[in-house]
Design a protein around this nucleic acid. Sequence first.
DNA 1: AAAATAACGTGATTATTTTCACGAATATTT
DNA 2: AAATATTCGTGAAAATAATCACGTTATTTT
Lengths: 211, 211
Amino acid sequence: MSKNNNKPIEIPKPTFERLKKYHALLLQEKDKEYISSEEIAEKLNITPEQVRKDFTYLNINGKPKIGYHIPSLEKELSEFFGTWILDNIIIIGAGNLGSALAKYKGFKKIGIRVAAIFDNDPEKIGSLVGELSVLPLAEIKRVIKRFKVKIGVICVSENSAQEIAELLIQNGIKAIWNFTPVNLQTPPGIIVENQDITTGILTIKHLMEKE
Amino acid sequence: MSKNNNKPIEIPKPTFERLKKYHALLLQEKDKEYISSEEIAEKLNITPEQVRKDFTYLNINGKPKIGYHIPSLEKELSEFFGTWILDNIIIIGAGNLGSALAKYKGFKKIGIRVAAIFDNDPEKIGSLVGELSVLPLAEIKRVIKRFKVKIGVICVSENSAQEIAELLIQNGIKAIWNFTPVNLQTPPGIIVENQDITTGILTIKHLMEKE
DNA sequence: AAAATAACGTGATTATTTTCACGAATATTT
DNA sequence: AAATATTCGTGAAAATAATCACGTTATTTT
Ligand SMILES: NC(=O)c1ccc[n+]([C@@H]2O[C@H](COP(=O)([O-])OP(=O)(O)OC[C@H]3O[C@@H](n4cnc5c(N)ncnc54)[C@H](O)[C@@H]3O)[C@@H](O)[C@H]2O)c1
Ligand SMILES: NC(=O)c1ccc[n+]([C@@H]2O[C@H](COP(=O)([O-])OP(=O)(O)OC[C@H]3O[C@@H](n4cnc5c(N)ncnc54)[C@H](O)[C@@H]3O)[C@@H](O)[C@H]2O)c1
């Protein structure tokens, strides 16, 4: 499917964001064999030209009159995002949110396995979250090494977030998935992805205001 | 602070996204009185010009040599997003994620109150999630009316998501905050905000691939 | 087997967004 | 009180992204 040309052009940021949506959409469209740019566009409320142009950045080709072969499309996107590589992650904070994430079944599809969950509350250490036993922070170093963990998920209370980020980085973590609203300060080279869920509802609140 | 001109120009989409980040940042910066565009820019990894230009869309003015008055700035953004209006929301699905959200303390700051949480599992109905008792779906109609609920949060299993969306819309819900990966089909006029957390980690996975 | 059709692929055009550059404003220093 | 140093505000220029328009290609129909 890929022309395998050299890929000189940088992918536009808006295209990157849409590629994530195509990837998510395809995980839900396993029943059909082909899908047209028109159909993708309609489901995501964009134009078919946009879809086709986005795909050219990954050298993804469809068939005229038929559309795009779903398994091939999914494979291309999986390779692009690296969801075919299994990454072990660790979760820090076995509270409401951290526990929910630890039990989430959907991670497997995107190549994520939760290797361990940590907390500093003696009451929680040793208790079960799904199939995982909550570990003390002292175990972090060992687990990161043992499971070659590169990604850490921060789900601790807000006032501990920065301190935990530093602890993770000290122990070799390369990317932080931050579920707290705290703006983490990190050295260059560390990837930080903020998952601030409140931004989601701000869009809703603003749209409702306008009416 | 606002010039209170008529606001003819549409706000660019990327600006809207950044406005949400400014809002979130300010909720964490309550200690100082003023903040410069330079400082905001540095924390969010953008340029100061961008920050200043974004603020002009809301007619927000700063003071030369000093920066922006934080309480005024926060007030403007709060009004823009409507976070000063208290909205009651309901959560459908009292599982791992729905329960975590129901207990989240951070909603108050953005003008959100969880009025009720629902489930269809007889085992869960009547049990406590934080201070809320899990209600059966039959109560949805009454609660929406009683608390004038406009926003519904979907946290049910994936195969029930569409059906619950329809139920909510039938009962007068105007906006859906969808935490499932399902692409909901809704009639025009209904706001749907998809909170797909997997997109967050796709960015990380892709950036790690490149190295 | 030719014609018609439906969808892709993409260079050119248009629209949007960011960056630049510099004047204006205000606090601080001399 | 004038000079100086910052930081804001913004039109103009540059960069980026979306749309358009049409040629191409594979399938289906006649
Ligand atoms: N609950 C939600 O729906 C939600 C939504 C958005 C954001 N968040 C954010 O996620 C974070 C966690 O939220 P939550 O609702 O799970 O809170 P929580 O209080 O239920 O859980 C926090 C957990 O972190 C642990 N912890 C605190 N400091 C620690 C440290 N230094 N080392 C190790 N563990 C530590 C606590 O023992 C606790 O188990 C918060 O920052 C919150 O703002 C939560
Ligand atoms: N857990 C996570 O961290 C996470 C992360 C991302 C997305 N999600 C999505 O959120 C949703 C919920 O995830 P979860 O982990 O809380 O699952 P869960 O199984 O713990 O909870 C689902 C809840 O929904 C209830 N439910 C199912 N069908 C229902 C119906 N028709 N009416 C009312 N209630 C119904 C179930 O009884 C259960 O209590 C899923 O769609 C999942 O994909 C979860």
